[in-house]
Structures are given as C-alpha cells and as structure tokens.
Computed example of a mutant assay.
Amino acid sequence: MTARGRPFEKLPAGARKHLESMAASGLLSESAAATALGMPLDQFRRVVQEHAPSKLIWETALSIERDQLLDALYCRAVDGDTRAAQTLLAVRHGLSEKAPQGSGGGVSVVFNLPSAMDPQAYLEAIQVKQEALPNASSD
C-alpha cells in the first residue's frame, strides 16, 4: 500500500513532452496519462480541469491525437473507403445522408388570424354606413 502525499496542484515537470509523445503514438487516455505521470486518476482529472496551464497541456495532447486520427481517416477515404469518407464529411463539414442539404427545405407560409369577436361586435364591424351622394341633377 502506497502512502499518499500532498495532492497535485498541477501536472508534473515534463508532462507536456510525455503527453504529446503518448498522443503521437496512439496511447493517450486519461488513465494511461495519469499512470505515466505518477498521479492518481482523480487528481489528474481535477488538475486538468482546475489548473489552466495543465488544461492547455492536456488539450494540446488531445489535439495531436485528433489530428492523427483525422489524417488516418482521410487516407482511408482517399483510398476508396466510403464509410471513412462519409464520416469525414459529417465530422468536418456537417454533411450527412440523414439530414437534408441546403437551408432546410421548401417554403413555409404562416397565417395569423385575429381573435374571435363576440356577435355584437361582429355586427357593428360589418355594418356599412351609407353616405348621401350629391344629387347630380342639381347642377
């Protein structure tokens, strides 16, 4: 049983180089990173969440891993793997077979009707008052 010392406040020295190397070789995960850096997993998670410079180191390592995976997916797509091509189109360009392309489809028309009137108000509204026309023969 190992004794626990003070909790980590930041990633240990050399963490950037170590995590970037793990990302480049495809071995990056939270648990593997914590073990490689000699940190308990819960402390590793807390440090990369709360300590801004440590968070930046972790996000940079994740970016390296993401870029390598996208590159591998791109190579497969160019070599004719249609599933890889579909995935890249969906991830990088927001295109999917399931969603319609374009601005969302056809025309939409909305009719806004006034609220119902009580019968007396309706009768008053439709009554037309006749104006007396000047008599044309009086000229």
Rank of each mutant, 00 (worst) to 15 (best):
L113R: 12
E124N: 11
A132Y: 06
F44I: 06
R46G: 07
A24L: 10
P119D: 07
E131H: 08
D67F: 08
S103N: 09
P7D: 05
A85S: 12
A132N: 07
L62C: 11
D139F: 11
C75V: 11
P53K: 06
E97K: 04
L62Y: 00
V107K: 10
L70T: 03
S21F: 06
S54F: 07
G38E: 12
S103G: 14
S63W: 01
S63P: 00
D139V: 14
Y122A: 15
K129R: 10
S21W: 02
H18I: 01
V109P: 00
L123E: 13
A52Y: 05
Q68E: 06
Q120C: 03
M117Y: 05
Q130V: 12
S21I: 00
S25T: 14
V109W: 03
F111S: 03
Q120K: 12
A3K: 10
G104L: 03
I57V: 15
A32W: 01
S96D: 10
R4L: 13
E131Y: 01
P7H: 02
A52L: 10
M117A: 11
A36Y: 08
C75R: 11
E131M: 07
A3L: 13
A90D: 08
E124H: 10
L62H: 00
Q127Y: 02
E30V: 03
A72T: 09
A90P: 00
